[in-house]
């Protein structure tokens, strides 16, 4: 390291790794992880979401889980929460759907209407 610029570069990269502890992330993805969700494949959905976020370097998105929402036949259920927008709940989020939700909704801001099962 020979300059402040070099330090800045390391800092930017390292910050992506520790950002989760700052609580500053704006966008949230919540995956239903009740027994029903897990049975319907929510674990795979989760893995795909993390994989997709990692590939796209989307480090300012928090991913958390929640319990059963009482809509077991719609599992795996994924909620997307973007500040100043209604919370969108997607149903039957397979691995493939999860990838598309990240690409369309999280990255481009276009909700995928046909999979939406609720808003809050």
């Amino acid at each position: 390291m020979k300059s402040l610029k070099d330090l800045e570069a390391i800092r930017e990269k390292a910050k992506q790794m520790t950002g989760i502890r700052e609580g500053k992330a704006q966008t949230k993805i919540i995956v239903g992880m009740g027994t029903c969700g897990i049975a319907a494949g929510a674990r795979d959905t989760m893995k795909v979401i993390l994989d997709e976020l990692g590939k796209r370097n989307l480090t300012d998105v928090t991913v958390t889980q929640t319990g059963c929402l009482g809509l077991c036949e719609q599992e795996p259920i994924v909620e997307v929460e973007i500040p100043d927008q209604p919370r969108i709940i997607y149903g039957k989020v397979s691995a493939e759907r999860a990838r598309q939700i990240i690409a369309n909704h999280i990255v481009n801001g276009n909700m995928i209407g046909e999979w939406v099962i609720g808003r809050k």
């Binding site: 300059s3 402040l4 330090l7 390391i10 800092r11 390292a14 910050k15 790794m17 520790t18 502890r21």
Partner: peptide, 25 residues
């Protein structure tokens, strides 16, 4: 309690070594 003390990158992420850089440059 916020960073991994064995990781210099995590220290740098939290503004580590900025003060030294500022001082010497």
């Amino acid at each position: 309690g916020r960073i991994d003390p064995d990781s210099i990158d995590e220290y740098i992420a939290n503004d580590g070594y900025q003060a030294l850089g500022k001082a010497v440059t």
